[in-house]
Design a binder for these strands. Structure first.
Ligand SMILES: [Mn+2]
Ligand SMILES: [Mn+2]
Ligand SMILES: [Zn+2]
Ligand SMILES: [Zn+2]
Lengths: 165, 165
DNA sequence: TGACAAACGATAATATTTATCGTTTAATAG
DNA sequence: CTATTAAACGATAAATATTATCGTTTGTCA
């Protein structure tokens, strides 16, 4: 249930990452490659904390600060997206294609939702506040299959644990 | 520029709040009335911190914990909404009518966006993940008028300040 | 008006994110 | 290939955001 992205797609993303990083003058350090790969391999929109946990398996000396710094750097450069639909920690997205999200209001699972009709969403009238609208983002809020049968308990944990014994 | 709701509307909301609170067996304390009124008077989707600042003007001894506890209580009972479009602190919404939001990606301003076409947003196909979709939520991300001319600096502050001299 | 559950205020604890700073390392010029 | 150096890293403190705990106060209802 790790919601893994196909290896072929992961390699495509790694190639794109290396190419764009090079163009942007972003040093391709070992840490950055591992951090990005962890993000690219996951379809679950992982939190910084979860990314940190997984990167630590490959680089036990990695610092949480390094993970945060690089998530922010990647996001600022458009190499990853930040999903901010729920309160709590941010969720990171390697999928740069136009898409929307299914969000479980119970366990906070976030799943990609590709749908042509959602892509075409636009307001009927110009907004009276005169915002310059850059893009529309749709969230379909509801319950994931697991939470439909057992809506009581919350499955996703984003929190750090002091003692992980 | 306080983005104030008309007094008539505020009084309607207060009436509704009192009625629903009574129905729900929620004690109508002085603190709760003031906290709710602060939320009801604002159209800017204030953060808990901002609500706390304003409530303090009327109840200088109010605790930040009381403000948080009551925001959560109100939200759990459906008396207010929580807007979670941006990272950082949550934003509280007294407007319970069906509506969407304009969000400034620069200063994080959140403005109500009522639009019939957005209300009718639905996916073209059933979602392959079999979520039970409860509602669709649309955010129009862009730049508010102020940030279109001066996109550099961030105007909204949600943060506490240690020294407020 | 008194009893009691609920709510409050103070504050500690936890969770999330960013800043600081000394050390290490990737990039590149020679 | 090595020296230089700006960038990145790791450790950790600090800032910010939210929740929990607990003793005191207050609203509710008999
Ligand atoms: Mn996604
Ligand atoms: Mn609103
Ligand atoms: Zn769920
Ligand atoms: Zn703005």
């Amino acid at each position: 249930m790790q919601n893994t992205v196909p290896a072929r797609r992961v390699e495509e993303r790694m190639k794109h990452f290396q190419a764009r990083a090079s163009e942007l003058g972003l040093a391709a350090t070992h840490q950055r490659r591992i951090i990005y790969r962890v993000i690219a391999k996951s379809a679950e929109h992982p939190s910084p904390e979860l990314i940190y946990e997984r990167v630590k398996r490959e680089i036990p000396t990695i610092s949480l600060a390094t993970v945060y710094k690089n998530i922010k750097t990647f996001a600022a450069m458009g190499l990853v997206g930040e999903v901010g639909a729920l309160p709590g920690s941010i969720r990171v997205d390697a999928n740069l294609d136009r898409h929307h999200h299914l969000v479980c209001v119970n366990c906070k699972a976030v799943v990609d939702f590709c749908d042509s009709r959602l892509d075409r969403v636009r307001a009927a009238r110009a907004n009276p506040e005169n915002f310059r609208i850059l893009r529309y983002q749709v969230e379909a809020l509801g319950l994931c299959p697991a939470c439909q049968v057992a809506p009581a308990r919350n499955k996703v944990r984003t929190q750090r644990r002091k003692h992980n014994g």
